[in-house]
């Protein structure tokens, strides 16, 4: 490609939660293999809009830049995804970047996703162990089972599945596919399974699994390819059996 080529980037900005949002356009020098993060670094170095107006560097979240930390989820050209793996050459221009809308905004592209971590507490997403002292190996696990669990445990809590879900919005408290997947993961572990009842009760709480109406956008948006709808259906079955036989036989 020709030297001196530029890319136009439009960014939705908001100085704080109380201030109005606005769009700003930037022009960035093209280089091979660029991603959206590289554009944002360029803008930070030269915070001037395309029309020559000085502005501030864009606030955004990023950490690992290899799609394993989950920090940099934003909406690019209308699609929720990780900014680090959004390669400029694969995007239509101008590139439109917005913050995710399902979470409270902090500033510019930064949103507050603490809801997911709070829900992980309420859903008891851990394997309760007796202590960290050396008391010998864990339970044996069949390789096939490990493969399934591994696929589920790669969730990076990016929030893309919540962002694309029509049931995650200000009218509903839905915990979202990522958290339901966590319930499945911990119920699969031999030790975690000993406490499955508590998780299955929790997942029937307010904003629980009943809120899912199978639009199934989550599984398409997941950058880690986690079979979220399978997890959802599996937890649905477990939760239902627990609900029915819970009161019948307890």
């Amino acid at each position: 490609m020709a030297e001196g080529k530029t890319i136009v980037v439009k960014i939705k900005r908001q100085a704080s939660p109380t201030e109005p949002a606005r769009w700003e356009e930037f022009s960035v020098r093209w280089r091979p293999n660029m991603n959206v993060i590289a554009c944002l670094i360029d803008i930070a170095e030269n915070p001037v809009t395309r029309y020559g107006k000085p502005t501030t560097p864009v606030s955004y979240e990023a950490n690992c830049l290899e799609e394993v930390c989950g920090a940099c989820a934003v909406v690019i050209n209308g699609r929720s995804r990780q900014a680090c793996s959004a390669l400029v050459d694969h995007l239509d221009q101008p590139i439109r970047i917005e913050p995710m809308s399902s979470f409270p905004i902090v500033r510019d592209l930064v949103v507050d996703r603490s809801k997911m971590f709070e829900d992980a507490k309420r859903l008891r997403c851990w394997v309760p162990i007796d202590g960290t002292y050396d008391i010998g190996p864990g339970p044996r696990i069949a390789p096939e089972r490990q493969q399934v669990a591994y696929a589920l445990s790669r969730c990076i809590f990016c929030g893309n599945c919540l962002e694309v879900c029509p049931k995650v919005n200000e009218h509903s408290d839905f915990v979202g596919a990522a958290l339901i997947n966590q319930v499945r993961l911990f119920n699969m572990h031999p030790t975690g399974a000993m406490h499955a009842h508590e998780r299955l009760q929790a997942v029937r709480g307010i904003g629980g699994i009943q809120e899912c109406d199978n639009a199934q956008n989550c599984v398409k948006a997941c950058p880690k390819g986690i079979p979220l709808t399978e997890s959802n259906n599996d937890v649905n079955r477990q939760a239902l059996l627990d609900a029915i036989f819970g009161w019948m036989f307890r």
Binding site: N63, A71, S114, F117, L123, G205, I206, A243
Partner: peptide, 28 residues
């Protein structure tokens, strides 16, 4: 690059317990 998470809620004065969620009627 300056891109840290402006993460999570403001500080609580002390650590606080979070109970497990309980089943809601809306499930039924």
């Amino acid at each position: 690059m300056p891109a840290k998470a402006a993460a999570t809620a403001e500080v609580t004065p002390e650590a606080t317990t979070v109970p497990a969620a309980v089943p809601s009627r809306s499930y039924i």
